[in-house]
């Protein structure tokens, strides 16, 4: 099913491509959103990723799962976009923070506790350096294996593990600082 869609899309069939990527659009958007840190840049980046996947489809040779390749192209779009991002003035940065916080501000009273944790993780993740963030997102959020993460990011399995350990530690520290997890876990 997927392979026949890929073949048709490679031949220039846009509607086959739409069907094929319809299953991935959520993942692509979510990865870009978390990598870029705000909905506006996330959407721009996801849009570019989809177009790049379409334009470079002929380069997909089937050596890895299609999903891994999709992650690979998407992740490289994010890296490019982050590199292009001009340094922000503090005023703009604060306005953008406001823009972000606004997205989360009106919390329905019956909000899930789980959702609070997710939101906190998303917030804390923004402070983790981009190269660790991408490893964490692919491994721990999108559930890729160590090998697939390495393939998607073009790094070695050992690098995946070392970046992952640092990302997990940073995140956990920042979440505990926000009061998540059992209190006074270490008795300190």
């Amino acid at each position: 099913m997927e392979s026949s869609l890929i073949a048709a899309a490679k031949g220039g069939d846009a509607s086959a491509f739409e069907t094929l990527m319809g299953a991935y659009e959520r993942k692509v958007y979510a990865l870009c959103l978390r990598m870029m840190g705000n909905p506006h840049d996330g959407e721009d980046c996801a849009q570019e990723a989809m177009l790049r996947i379409w334009q470079r489809l002929s380069q997909y040779r089937g050596d890895s799962a299609f999903s891994t390749w999709v992650y690979r192209v998407t992740a490289s779009c994010c890296t490019d976009a982050l590199r292009r991002r001009r340094p922000q003035s503090s005023l703009e940065a604060m306005q953008e923070d406001g823009f972000d916080a606004r997205d989360d501000a009106p919390t329905p009273p019956e909000a899930h506790e789980a959702r609070e944790t997710q939101r906190a993780i998303a917030g804390a993740l923004a402070d983790v350096p981009a190269d660790m963030r991408s490893v964490f997102l692919l491994r721990d959020v999108h559930g890729l294996s160590v090998e697939d993460t390495a393939r998607a990011l073009g790094i070695s399995g050992g690098t995946v593990k070392s970046r992952l350990s640092r990302a997990r530690e940073k995140l956990a520290r920042s979440l505990r600082a926000q009061g998540f997890g059992p209190q006074n876990r270490d008795g300190r």
């Binding site: 959520r26 958007y29 959103l33 978390r34 944790t117 997710q118 993780i121 998303a122 995140l171 997890g181």
Partner: peptide, 13 residues
Amino acid sequence: DVLSGARDMDRDV
């Protein structure tokens, strides 16, 4: 204890 929620992080995106 704090990281187990990560997998569901994008559920309500």
